[in-house]
Amino acid sequence: MSNYGFRKFLNRLFFVLCAACIVIAVIPLLSIIWEVIVRGAPQLSLNFLAATNSGGGIGPAIQGTLILIGLTSLIGVPVGILSGVYLSEFGNNQYAQTMRSINDILTEFPSIVVGITAYGVIVIAIIGSYSAVAGAIALSFILIPIVARTTEESLKLVPNSVREASLALGAHKWRTTLSVVLPSAKSGLVTGTLLAVARIAGETAPLIMTILGNRYFFQGLNQPMAALPLEIWRDSLQPQASLQAQGWGAALILILIVLSLNILVRLASKGRMRK
């Protein structure tokens, strides 16, 4: 058993190494949160939140991001959920299988490519200008496949007996789906949708060639618009320290939006599991 000491040593070594991996992965997360708070918090003021860039604020960017979130959800969530309903409730055929595969592949599309797509269709062909709606379309293209997939997954978790019980009462399939199956999967749907919205709220790349950015507050769906991620990006590349600081302030707002959505979802689903 001469090698036993060595085996025991390896056992301990890899325990320490694996634990170290966790630490190494968590350090960036904590550092990011720390730096964003420390550098961003001093920026916060009513003026910073409400004024335009020339007034030393990021009001248009906050407004733009909220408009984007709203508009994208308006387009993407219904389409995503209905697609998911089809895949889950009627998804036992070749057509559905194909759509499911395409959907899976879409979720992995590079977001910048989606930006080019929206640029080609909306900015060039339809509106003829960088515009808020182009950004919302681009983000919807990202949102739809994610919502469709999470919808399908949460609907599949609804036991078949629930469907059968409703059908046995004489309810039609569409009724069963809308008033029995969807409500039973409600918490899963809400969770999945909120997470998907959190994800698109921070998307930057597809906004570059769609909404472009704007120094002013919202000027119409067919006009360029500001957004927090673009604000952070542009500020970070400025030489002036005051603009860089503005970028950190914007980052704090963005991360508050995204992380609070995530934590909210986590708490909500935890409560559900306890029940």
Binding site: A25, P28, L29, I32, V36, A198, R199, A201, G202, E203, T204, A205, P229, I232, W233, A251, L254, I255, V258, L259, N262
Partner: peptide
């Protein structure tokens, strides 16, 4: 870590 936006 996955929730942090790329730009951040």
């Amino acid at each position: 870590l996955a929730a942090v936006p790329s730009v951040i």
